[in-house]
């Protein structure tokens, strides 16, 4: 689905994005609500030996085997064991032109809200802890900064690669 189409889906004339907000590693992220399939409580995770740390696990979502991603790896945040608030957000991304269902760990899921796109600013080129191509923009909602990640790029297999590139991410 194109960005344009989604915006129209969400709210009048592409001025706002309907988004699910959630906490990961102390930051608030927003995922477009239209791409979200469901939100699950923590389920048993099967590790995939030798897989990239970012997608080290698999889960069962209604009889479907779905990769489980941890945004913390890509955003250089510290690992943290799941607790009662931990949720898995299941959503759809486009990988090499194929729609792919993925799960993502969230420390806590907030709510669905409309983020005014006019408040969204591009990610600063310098002074940010994260690779700029992973961030579509920083939006403001209720006085808080919300990171709108570029999910298709975060999940792109290019550079999802090895622990080394993850280290680079942390360093950069």
């Amino acid at each position: 689905m194109t960005q344009h189409a989604r915006d129209i889906d969400a709210v009048p004339a592409g001025e706002a994005m309907r988004a699910l907000t959630l906490d990961v590693g102390g930051e608030v992220f927003a995922i477009e609500a239209t791409s979200v399939r469901e939100i699950l409580d923590m389920v048993p995770v099967t590790e995939v030996p030798n897989a990239p740390a970012f997608v080290a696990g698999l889960i069962n979502v209604r009889g479907r085997v779905v990769p489980l991603a941890d945004l913390r790896v890509k955003f250089g945040m510290e690992h943290r064991p799941p607790d009662d608030d931990t949720r898995i957000v299941v959503f759809e991304i486009t990988l090499e032109e194929e729609p792919t269902v993925v799960g993502m760990l969230a420390d806590r899921v907030h709510t669905v809200c409309d983020i005014a796109l006019s408040t969204m600013e591009p990610a600063p080129k310098v002074g940010m802890r994260w690779r700029p191509e992973f961030v579509r923009g920083i939006a403001k909602h209720d006085g808080n900064f919300i990171i709108v990640p570029e999910m298709n790029r975060v999940f792109s297999t290019e550079g999802a690669g090895t622990a080394n590139s993850e280290n680079e991410t942390r360093a950069g």
Binding site: A51, L58, L95, T100, V102, A160
Partner: peptide, 11 residues
């Protein structure tokens, strides 16, 4: 397995 695990050859 999804494309995210395409490089993991042992499975």
């Amino acid at each position: 397995l999804s494309r995210l695990h395409a490089d993991v050859e042992t499975f």
